[in-house]
Simulated assay, not measured.
Amino acid sequence: MKLYGLKTCDTCRKAKKALPEADFIDVREEGVPAELLSAALVRFGDKLVNTRSTTWRELSEEDRKGTPQELLTQHPTLMKRPLIDDGETLYLGWDKATQASLGV
């Protein structure tokens, strides 16, 4: 299982603590693999872009017009977090539904 997020994100820390066996990948340092990003965009669409983030607020209006793929490739910290890949299914966020699906 892989957990993609930011080491400074409180929600990611909670998920990491609840899933100690998961490999944690900091998207600020390592980014998101292109193949995984494409699969996540197919599954979650525009929901993958966190429009409430500091990174989003700092983007110009022109930059915000990019496709989600372009935005997340150029600014991986725009991704809603955490993105969890258990090898079969992708999960986005750390809500009760995700926790229940992962048996936490």
Score class of each variant (00 low, 15 high):
residue 44 F to Q: 03
residue 45 G to Y: 01
residue 45 G to C: 01
residue 45 G to A: 02
residue 45 G to V: 01
residue 45 G to F: 02
residue 46 D to R: 03
residue 47 K to L: 03
residue 49 V to P: 07
residue 49 V to I: 11
residue 50 N to C: 08
residue 50 N to K: 11
residue 51 T to E: 13
residue 52 R to E: 06
residue 53 S to L: 09
residue 54 T to P: 10
residue 54 T to F: 06
residue 54 T to I: 12
residue 55 T to C: 14
residue 55 T to D: 12
residue 55 T to E: 13
residue 56 W to N: 13
residue 56 W to I: 09
residue 57 R to H: 14
residue 57 R to I: 08
residue 58 E to N: 13
residue 60 S to Q: 07
residue 60 S to R: 06
residue 60 S to F: 12
residue 63 D to T: 13
residue 63 D to I: 08
residue 65 K to D: 07
residue 66 G to A: 15
residue 67 T to I: 04
residue 67 T to A: 06
residue 69 Q to Y: 11
residue 70 E to F: 06
residue 70 E to T: 12
residue 71 L to R: 13
residue 71 L to Y: 09
residue 72 L to C: 11
residue 72 L to N: 12
residue 73 T to E: 15
residue 73 T to Y: 07
residue 73 T to R: 15
residue 74 Q to A: 15
residue 74 Q to D: 12
residue 76 P to M: 15
residue 77 T to R: 15
residue 78 L to Y: 11
residue 78 L to Q: 13
residue 80 K to N: 05
residue 80 K to P: 00
residue 81 R to V: 07
residue 82 P to N: 08
residue 83 L to E: 07
residue 83 L to K: 10
residue 83 L to V: 08
residue 84 I to F: 04
residue 84 I to V: 09
residue 84 I to T: 06
residue 86 D to I: 03
residue 86 D to N: 07
residue 86 D to M: 00
residue 86 D to E: 01
residue 87 G to S: 04
residue 87 G to F: 04
residue 87 G to Y: 02
residue 88 E to Q: 09
residue 88 E to K: 09
residue 89 T to H: 09
residue 89 T to S: 06
residue 90 L to C: 05
residue 91 Y to R: 01
residue 91 Y to F: 08
residue 91 Y to W: 04
residue 92 L to R: 01
residue 93 G to F: 03
residue 93 G to M: 01
residue 93 G to D: 02
residue 93 G to E: 01
residue 94 W to T: 06
residue 95 D to P: 00
residue 95 D to F: 00
residue 96 K to P: 00
residue 96 K to V: 00
